[in-house]
């Protein structure tokens, strides 16, 4: 199933609705970066509210997307991480540099990107 990428002004919004296989995550990364490149988006929001598990692969993938997006000039905010998921991620002991910003929900994610733009 293709995951839709919405465009709102110069911000892309991706809402992950269900658990993704590794291959689907890779496809999604590809699609997002393609889209950023195509429309010249300045911001990217990935909403993972629906995810009850974020394992190291998913976390690395999100991080990789964020890093690549930054290189393409688009700041990334991951929103909607569940509290249990957040704590588990920390306990997992990922020692990756989070190139990715996080926010509680879509609204706050948009706020962060807008503030950035105003500066």
């Amino acid at each position: 199933m293709k995951i839709p990428i919405l465009k709102m002004e110069d911000i892309l919004i991706v809402t992950i609705q269900s658990e993704l296989t590794d291959r689907e995550i890779e496809e999604l990364s590809h699609d997002i970066l393609d889209m950023i490149n195509k429309v010249g988006a300045e911001g990217l929001i990935i909403d993972i509210t629906a995810l009850k598990v974020v394992d190291s692969f998913m976390a690395r993938s999100l991080n990789a997307i964020a890093n690549a997006a930054t290189l393409l000039g688009s700041e990334t905010v991951v929103v909607g991480i569940q509290p249990a998921v957040a704590l588990t991620l920390v306990e997992l002991g990922l020692r990756i540099s989070w190139g990715v910003k996080t926010a509680l929900n879509l609204e706050k994610g948009l706020e962060i990107l807008r503030k950035k733009k105003d500066k």
């Binding site: 598990v53 190291s56 249990a84």
Partner: peptide, 26 residues
Amino acid sequence: RKMANEIGFGELDQTRITTAISELAR
């Protein structure tokens, strides 16, 4: 996750167990 829930683990432990299974299965 379903089994952890049935056994009586709370939300946080369910997430830990499920994540561990994910890592090992992968």
